[in-house]
Amino acid sequence: MSSQVLAPTLVIRTSCSDDVNGMLPLMRQLRYPTTPSVLKEHLSMLDNHPLFCNLVAELDGNVVGTTFLKLYQTHDMKKPVTQITAMVVDEEHRGTGIGKRLLREAETWCKQHGSSQMYLSTGDRNMDAKTFYEHLGFICTGYRLSKTLS
């Protein structure tokens, strides 16, 4: 008698406002302060917006990763570029390929929307994230400068 071992099913899909409860723990892992109502409002605003995309990675029906994308183009660009404004895989599932799959789907969305490049910022103390992105072909260039306006 042979026994079957079922592998977990990973699905990458566009998020919806019903994903709030699954995404809240991920946002907290990123140290993004949010509440269920604020996150639901933000996800609702992203629904069918042509310049934004939020993907989730769902493992056996549970949200275990997410990435937020923002497409933009300025007067001096021939093609738009896409900023990854947030990306996280649940701590218990890191190193399993979920982040790589999320980025592949993100690249597909970017190409479908005419984007010529993806970019992001990571904290200077997050070397694991920097290594992850560089392993997937991202190149570290320059410095990010910012100014808080009061």
Rank of each mutant, 00 (worst) to 15 (best):
residue 56 V to K: 01
residue 49 H to M: 00
residue 94 R to T: 12
residue 77 M to V: 05
residue 55 L to M: 10
residue 78 K to A: 14
residue 110 C to M: 13
residue 117 Q to C: 13
residue 105 E to P: 00
residue 71 L to F: 08
residue 105 E to S: 14
residue 25 P to F: 10
residue 28 R to E: 15
residue 142 G to L: 07
residue 43 L to C: 06
residue 32 Y to C: 07
residue 110 C to R: 06
residue 123 G to W: 01
residue 54 N to I: 05
residue 119 Y to A: 02
residue 56 V to D: 05
residue 38 V to W: 02
residue 8 P to S: 11
residue 24 L to R: 03
residue 89 V to A: 10
residue 89 V to F: 12
residue 73 Q to M: 14
residue 143 Y to T: 12
residue 14 T to E: 12
residue 64 V to Y: 09
residue 145 L to G: 04
residue 41 E to T: 13
residue 36 P to E: 07
residue 76 D to P: 02
residue 111 K to G: 01
residue 94 R to F: 03
residue 99 G to T: 07
residue 55 L to K: 07
residue 144 R to E: 09
residue 63 V to K: 04
residue 22 G to V: 08
residue 91 E to A: 13
residue 124 D to F: 06
residue 42 H to R: 14
residue 66 T to N: 10
residue 115 S to N: 12
residue 93 H to I: 02
residue 15 S to G: 11
residue 18 D to P: 00
residue 29 Q to F: 08
residue 58 E to R: 02
residue 31 R to A: 13
residue 15 S to Q: 01
residue 12 I to E: 04
residue 54 N to V: 12
residue 131 T to E: 10
residue 90 D to A: 14
residue 112 Q to L: 11
residue 141 T to Y: 06
residue 21 N to Y: 11
residue 103 L to D: 08
residue 73 Q to G: 06
residue 86 A to Q: 10
residue 130 K to C: 09
residue 7 A to V: 01
residue 113 H to G: 02
residue 8 P to V: 01
residue 38 V to H: 10
residue 145 L to E: 06
residue 128 D to T: 09
residue 77 M to P: 04
residue 74 T to F: 08
residue 77 M to R: 12
residue 119 Y to P: 02
residue 58 E to H: 03
residue 30 L to D: 11
residue 126 N to A: 00
residue 118 M to D: 03
residue 101 R to I: 01
residue 105 E to R: 13
residue 129 A to Y: 09
residue 148 T to A: 08
residue 132 F to W: 04
residue 95 G to Y: 07
residue 114 G to I: 09
residue 98 I to R: 06
residue 138 F to V: 02
residue 67 T to S: 12
residue 36 P to L: 05
residue 28 R to T: 12
residue 19 D to V: 06
residue 72 Y to K: 04
residue 139 I to H: 09
residue 37 S to R: 05
residue 76 D to F: 15
residue 80 P to Q: 11
residue 140 C to N: 15
residue 89 V to N: 10
residue 72 Y to F: 15
residue 109 W to N: 05
residue 9 T to C: 02
residue 31 R to I: 00
residue 33 P to Y: 07
residue 112 Q to W: 03
residue 146 S to T: 15
residue 22 G to P: 09
residue 84 I to R: 06
residue 149 L to S: 04
residue 13 R to E: 07
residue 133 Y to W: 02
residue 26 L to H: 12
